[in-house]
Amino acid sequence: MADPYSILGVSKGADDKAIKLAYRKLAKELHPDKNKDNPKASDRFSEVTQAYDLLSDPKKRGQYDRGEIDENGQPRFAGNPFGGGGGYSQGGPAGGNFDFGNGGIDLGDIFDGLFGGGGVGRPGGGPGPRSQHAPPPKGANIAYTHLVSFTDAATLAPQRIMLGDGKTVEFKLPAGIVAGQQIRIPGKGQPGPGGHGDAMVTLKIGRHPDLVRDGDNIRIDLPISLKEAVSGGKVKVPTVDGAVMLTVPPRTNSGAVLRIKGRGFTAKTGVRGDQLVTLMIHLPTDPAELARISDILSDSSVRENIGV
């Protein structure tokens, strides 16, 4: 990923408000729901979301600005004990193996050589006993990080990830998905005497410009007009499954919460949560329109009909 400041189009001195405004603008333009025929927009949306996740976290932003972590949130290493300027390889094998930039030095092989090829299994540096019945070891696992869009996480949409060998593999998201959760893809790790290791995919969940997760539910603050609040009517509400029309009852107060069943995240039980819509009355800014509404409400018969 490129520099997160460049991705969002903000300067390194930008404050939190400027970063949030830049993200909201790009997220609305690039959201997958608006670009279903443009896969590049979906990739760009994920990139923008990942950049915002880093810069919106004061701790991570500070670490990035000081050069302690890279654009993917991975630690940077100044060097290695063997010379050369290699660093940690994000797509490298999990379990302590590092890529030092010169063909990938396996520390296990080096220590085996230092101690006669048998490890350090017993005092004195000699090889430790090995069970004759122990199966040959599999290859090392390989760690990956995958950003899931908010909509995909809620609807459990199938995911695709590119592996270190350039091939792509599809996998399913688990019910009850949470950020930081790991998915194991068997046989997609490094080769070994006992077969390939696994790919270990750590999931991140992107943010949505309008929707917020609340456990298995999803919340949204929806502005409505004073006329809609007084007289009732139909309003359009975005959800992770597409926009729906919601009926606002007459004489609805600002702050009232309406529920849309089954439009939230899928719990571990397989049951989807709901979407909770908080209605916020939005008054017009035009003085003439405000005066017209005031004149209508001053009519005693109107007030009696609407219960004001």
Rank of each mutant, 00 (worst) to 15 (best):
K17A: 11
F111Y: 15
G91W: 15
F98V: 09
R66K: 13
I177R: 01
L246F: 02
E47I: 05
I110R: 15
G233H: 10
K20N: 11
G84R: 12
P129I: 01
E170Q: 09
G195W: 12
G83K: 11
R303S: 05
A291V: 01
S294T: 14
A175G: 02
R259P: 00
N72R: 13
H196N: 15
V201T: 08
E47Y: 01
D3N: 15
R160F: 00
P223A: 03
T168N: 13
K188C: 11
N253L: 14
A143K: 11
R24I: 15
L203K: 05
P158L: 15
K28N: 07
L258M: 10
A51W: 12
D112T: 02
Q90G: 15
D37I: 00
H146M: 05
D198K: 02
L156K: 13
I224T: 03
D165G: 12
R251Y: 04
T269M: 00
A134Y: 01
I218Q: 09
K234Q: 13
G108W: 04
G139D: 06
Y144W: 12
T269H: 01
R259A: 00
S231E: 14
K236W: 03
D286I: 00
K34W: 00
G194M: 11
A94C: 13
V277T: 04
R303Y: 00
S56G: 03
T151M: 09
A78R: 10
G262E: 07
G79E: 08
S294V: 03
V308G: 02
S149E: 10
Y23Q: 11
G62F: 01
D106L: 11
I69D: 00
Y64P: 02
V244P: 06
T202K: 14
V10T: 05
P75D: 08
I260H: 03
I220T: 07
D214T: 02
A229C: 04
V120K: 05
P32Q: 08
L173P: 09
G96Q: 08
K17N: 06
K25H: 10
M1Y: 11
D216V: 01
A157R: 14
Y88E: 08
K12T: 06
K60E: 10
L222Q: 14
G124V: 07
L21M: 07
K34T: 00
G119N: 06
V271D: 07
A134F: 01
N217D: 15
Q181C: 10
S42K: 13
I177H: 05
K204M: 11
G73S: 07
L30T: 04
G121I: 05
G180N: 11
A154D: 02
G67H: 10
E228N: 07
S56F: 02
G192N: 08
D274Q: 08
K25V: 01
G13K: 10
R122F: 03
M245L: 09
D216H: 01
D214L: 05
P123M: 04
P123F: 04
R160C: 01
F265L: 08
D214H: 10
T252I: 05
R44F: 00
T145I: 14
G116F: 04
R66Q: 12
K20R: 13
G255F: 04
H208R: 09
K188H: 15
N217W: 06
D109C: 08
K268A: 13
P287K: 02
E304Y: 02
